[in-house]
Write a protein that binds this DNA or RNA. Structure first.
Length: 713
DNA sequence: CTGGGCGCTT
DNA sequence: AAGCGCC
């Protein structure tokens, strides 16, 4: 039951939400996949190219992204990996998602992208709240399974696990205060979060986690101690409201999920124009030109809007320039600014709503039908492969869902300049056309055995060879048929030669983007009788992690060994309280982008090639790294965490926001190192450059210096 | 001067 | 169908 709508102003939700964020997801997957290559993520990503570098990039002053070219210039050993094929990343993502899901009681586990997960653990927490023995909090037990009280873990309930935002000045013992009860839920949730994070570390991946009372706050507060710790935001209980206000206020507008570039631009414009006539607020009165829209915080905006306060209707009129009144709704924006977020964690879905493959052709747009056809073949080929891997149940030999419609989207290559400011909406020229997806796609695709085309899984059954090639042939046939019979005609309709959209006036096409998408999933309801509701899908997920749950019973001493102090660096009972002012700096640590990524997309993309280019570096082999440890104790990511790969491209689209590129650089260095993850780092200070170098990176670092000497210019 | 997906919304 | 917003 969803809980009745409360007055937005007063109480925050009494839900308990966790938000997990995998640290440097792509880099971690890559490193785990190729453990022989002891490389360090350089944080370069361009298009889907992943780049790794075998010396500590950060020590060279590389903080964020850089172009491949400049990276190669300073790092000749750079290993460029074609990351166009995202399958390995998708696989890991699914695995970890299934892991978390296997612990959920209500199946409210929502994924965002490949590397973030929300989890609504209200029910688990409330259940365990009742189990709590107030007289012996130190030896508490978190029960993970109602039916089996033995399944669970011990924890010290006297305090939070991990870090805490906001002052926690109340002891827990002996209080019956209702407000403190809510706080106790957060205590419980923090221990659950730690437990789950350790489970994920057992799989070889490190995460940050945010714990709070709604999705927004959980996600935001998880950033405070990235990449490998957790933070609980005391958004309820004593000081809860104040904590939320300060926490939200310290964020830049753009940092709030839901406020994208367009919305933030509108709000910033409003702030700047609004603060001009009232010179009282800032010390410098007529210096409106110095206001950088990027730096406007929520506190700024809200303070300006004290009287008259910002109303939804006012906001509506501000946002009206956005095309079609799109984007986040005004009422939701207002909620977000105050740290409210009523949106529930969505129940886990077994099926995606759509699957699409697209490619861009910027440097050389497609100009002939033949080119288009070839690209459509490539794209369709990949798409059909995805259909098999995602929608085909190989155990039961059947489709779990059939998409019913096929959509083709094209975009002409714009010859116009990226567009100046003013005028938020301009059709960027995506046009699409939908049509039924022919049924032969499924019959033909199901014919062949293993989906061996791309993934090359051994299917083991006797001679898979003949079957495999048969499957390939079938797939190619389907691909060609789909392209010539369906997609190409659609394309012609979208781009009639000489038509109004033909920018080349009959001379040919100029296509900058192709996207083929299947949607409208027709889920094959699990055989069964009544076939009633479209409930959550496979329950098999729990089976996948039985091993993970088998020995979840461990006592306190076991917990100490199993992870509390060794594997993660935080200890139960030692809470870290962060003062508000510090956090104000921390939360915008990932604000700037020093140099925009550049590069050209050449269209010779071979989607199908998974060739990962691991060249063994002989020098690296010399060094004996600690073998084996599945759980990274002090991995490269702790020390050389660059940034969340995916945040990188933000903020760049608005040229108007690039007033002065430089500023806040120095003070954010610290924050890239987890506050409390430092202790266990083993390493030395390099005698040459005096940088601290972790042991695992030593040989690479040596090599760096030796190269400096030899071929150094 | 540039990415590939996805979901939500109108 | 075509936006925005998220990673």
């Amino acid at each position: 039951m969803d809980h009745p709508r409360k007055n937005l102003k007063t109480k925050h939700d009494d839900r308990v939400i966790l938000h997990f964020d995998l640290d440097c997801f792509y880099a971690q997957v890559f490193e785990n996949k190729t453990p022989s290559l002891k490389s360090l993520p350089l944080g370069i990503r361009q298009k889907s190219l992943l780049a790794t570098c075998n010396y500590p990039a950060r020590r060279l002053g590389v903080k964020k992204l850089m172009s491949i070219a400049s990276a190669l210039a300073i790092c000749p050993d750079l290993v460029i990996v074609d990351g166009e094929d995202l399958t390995p990343f998708r696989d890991v993502s699914k695995r970890l998602y299934a892991l978390l899901r296997s612990y959920s009681w209500n199946d409210r586990v929502e994924r965002l992208g490949l590397d973030e997960v929300w989890m609504d653990v209200s029910d688990m927490v409330e259940y365990n709240l009742e189990l709590l023995n107030r007289n012996d909090l130190e030896h508490s037990w978190f029960c993970l399974d109602k039916e089996d009280p033995e399944k669970g873990f011990a924890f010290d309930g006297r305090g939070f696990a991990g870090c805490v935002y906001g002052r926690d000045h109340f002891g827990l013992e002996g209080t019956d205060d209702a407000e403190l009860l809510i706080r106790t839920k957060l205590v419980l949730a923090s221990h659950l979060a730690l437990y789950l994070r350790l489970k994920i570390e057992e799989e070889g991946y490190t995460t940050a986690c945010g714990i709070s009372t709604n999705k927004l706050l959980a996600k935001l507060v998880g950033n405070v101690n990235k990449p490998r710790n957790q933070t609980t935001l005391l958004s309820c209980g004593p000081d809860g409201e104040e904590n939320v206000r300060r926490f939200m206020g310290s964020h830049q507008l753009r940092k709030v999920p839901g406020i994208g570039g367009k919305t933030a631009a509108v709000l910033s414009d409003f702030f700047i124009s609004g603060s001009k006539p009232t010179p009282n607020s800032n010390s410098n009165s007529n210096s409106n030109s110095t206001i950088n829209p990027k730096e406007i915080s929520i506190a700024d905006l809200l303070s300006l809007l004290k009287n008259p306060p910002l109303t939804p209707s006012k906001l509506d009129s501000l946002l009206s320039p956005l095309p079609g009144g799109q984007g986040t709704g005004s009422k939701q924006i207002l909620s977000l600014l105050h740290g409210h977020d009523p949106l529930p964690v969505k129940p886990a879905r077994s099926l995606p709503t759509q699957i699409s493959i697209e490619d861009t052709y910027h440097s050389s747009p497609l100009t002939s039908l033949e080119q288009v056809r070839q690209e459509l073949v490539k794209i369709t080929q990949s798409l059909l492969k995805r259909l098999r891997t995602d929608l085909w149940d190989d155990d039961k030999k059947r489709w779990v869902a059939r998409p019913r419609t096929l959509r083709l989207t094209t975009r002409p290559r714009t010859t116009d300049p990226p567009r100046e400011n003013r005028g938020y909406g301009y059709g960027y020229g995506r046009v699409s056309k939908s049509q039924g997806l022919p049924g032969y796609v499924f019959s033909s695709l199901s014919a062949g055995a293993g989906g061996g085309i791309g993934n090359g899984n051994g299917e083991g059954k006797g001679n898979g060879d003949g079957e495999n090639t048969a499957a390939m042939a079938a797939q190619i046939h389907v691909t060609k048929r789909l392209v010539t019979e369906t997609l190409l005609p659609m394309f012609r309709e979208l781009n009639p030669l000489g038509g109004p959209k033909d920018k080349t006036r009959g001379r040919g096409y100029c296509i900058g983007l192709l996207n083929v998408c299947v949607t409208n999933m027709d889920s094959v309801e699990t055989s069964g009788s009544g076939g009633g509701g479209g409930g959550g899908g496979g329950r098999d997920i729990k089976d996948m992690f039985t091993s993970a749950r088998e020995f979840t019973v461990y006592d306190h001493s076991a917990a100490d060994q199993a992870g509390y102090d060794a594997k993660t660096t935080q200890q139960p009972g030692i809470e870290e309280t962060i003062d508000d002012d510090m956090v104000a700096e921390e939360v915008d640590m990932d604000s700037d982008i020093t140099s925009p990524p550049r590069g050209n997309k050449n269209d010779d993309n071979d989607n199908d090639n998974d060739n990962i280019n691991h060249q063994q570096d002989p020098v690296l082999d010399v060094c004996d790294y600690e073998q084996d440890s599945r759980i990274p104790t002090t991995t490269s990511n702790d020390y050389f965490h660059i940034e969340d790969d995916d945040d990188i491209w933000d903020d760049q689209e608005d040229n108007t926001w690039n007033n002065d590129g430089q500023s806040e650089e120095e003070d954010m260095m610290d924050h890239d190192y987890p506050r409390d993850a430092g202790g266990s780092g083993e390493g030395i200070n390099c005698p040459l450059c005096s940088h601290f170098i972790p042991l695992f990176a030593l040989s690479a670092h040596e090599r760096f210096h030796s190269m400096e000497g030899e071929e150094g210019d």
